[in-house]
């Protein structure tokens, strides 16, 4: 059986979770087995999870699951995996998933691969791919243990409505008492966080001054995109540090990455070169970023960006 952990934030399931369920269901098909989704704690829309391919949906409820403690969550998932006889456990490659994957590997004495981006190949052993060297290469891992745990990189496979809604079953497993006391959770509502964003508009030192960001916010606004930035801009405090993408910032793989006034240094590319389509706006035709771009505009961003915003507005209106 393939067990998928259906992660939710503040009781809501996000696209990444539907992707993971679809991934779990497809992996189960390959292995000739079934896929079960597991929900920890209370969430809305649990009935829906079957639609994405889970043939069974189970829920563990406990007061100990209302805030996140990786030790408690991992123990609960491992207890469930053992109880249900799971052979493969899949979670989102999110901050939550990353805190759990290693713990699950140790608890279940399982081989683990984090951030996989492809369905397993079963030709010779159980093999999965993941990006390594900050997106500069792909590695194929073979997992040899009986039980396997994987975290799925967001935006690697599209969620598919491949099943039907199923009822929720309660699962009784031991849930330990948390040692971590969560004092505060601050999230910005209404903005898709960078690792999940499909459209990203990013800007760098070419912006000259933090006061000039209005044109970037406007472009992102009409596109419904999330904003990002290069490292020096975050280091200088022009932009919040969670917007910093690259080797030492967030690694992203959106469908569209628009970069304005960013030179395309190797450490910047490391975090964004897996974007499906890259648009570069730079006044320097020699900027290295053009080599990694699909579409390039050689010009002054202060003129080009507002024109692009207008063109998108016109496109959306048509």
């Amino acid at each position: 059986m393939v067990l998928v952990i259906a992660e939710h934030q503040k009781g809501k399931f996000k696209k990444a979770t539907f992707e993971t369920i679809t991934y779990g269901a497809k992996t189960a098909e390959l292995l000739n087995t079934t896929c079960t989704a597991l929900v920890l704690g209370q969430a809305e829309g649990i009935d829906n999870l079957g639609t994405y391919g889970a043939s069974k949906v189970m829920q563990v409820n406990s007061d100990h699951l209302t805030s996140f403690d990786s030790q408690v969550y991992a123990a609960t998932i491992a207890n469930a995996a053992k109880e249900l006889g799971a052979k493969v456990v899949v979670i989102n490659h999110s901050t939550t998933g990353k805190s759990l994957l290693g713990r699950l590997a140790v608890r279940l004495e399982a081989g683990s691969v984090s951030g996989v981006n492809s369905l397993p190949s079963l030709d010779e052993g159980f093999k999965v791919n993941k990006n390594v060297f900050s997106g500069k290469a792909v590695a194929t891992f073979e997992i040899k243990s009986d039980v396997k745990v994987l975290s799925l990189m967001g935006n690697s496979i599209p969620p598919e409505e491949m099943g039907a809604a199923v009822g929720v079953e309660a699962l009784n497993v031991e849930v330990p008492t948390p040692k971590v006391k969560v004092l505060e959770v601050k999230t910005v509502d209404g903005i898709v966080p960078l690792p999940e964003a499909e459209l990203v508009v990013s800007a760098g030192r070419g912006m000259k001054d933090p006061g000039n960001w209005g044109i970037i916010d406007e472009l992102a606004g009409v596109l419904g995109a999330t904003t990002a930035c290069s490292r020096p801009v975050a280091d200088a405090g022009w932009r919040p540090h969670h917007e910093h993408v690259g080797q030492t910032g967030v690694a992203i793989l959106p469908n569209l990455y628009i970069a304005a006034g960013i030179s395309g240094a190797i450490q910047h590319l490391a975090g964004v070169n897996r974007s499906k389509v890259i648009v570069v706006i730079n006044k320097d035709p020699e900027a290295p970023f053009f080599k990694a771009a699909d579409y390039g505009v050689v010009g002054d961003l202060f003129e080009v960006v507002p024109k692009l915003t207008e063109a998108i507005k016109a496109f959306k209106a048509s």
């Binding site: 990786s70 805190s99 290693g102 060297f133």
Partner: peptide, 23 residues
């Protein structure tokens, strides 16, 4: 920055039975 695993810390925590805070 080579394997981009984000796994070692969480594994050590489990092996030592300690709480873990990522990132």
């Amino acid at each position: 920055i080579d394997f981009n695993g984000s796994e070692v810390g969480s594994m050590i925590a489990e092996a030592l039975d300690l709480p873990f805070i990522s990132y």
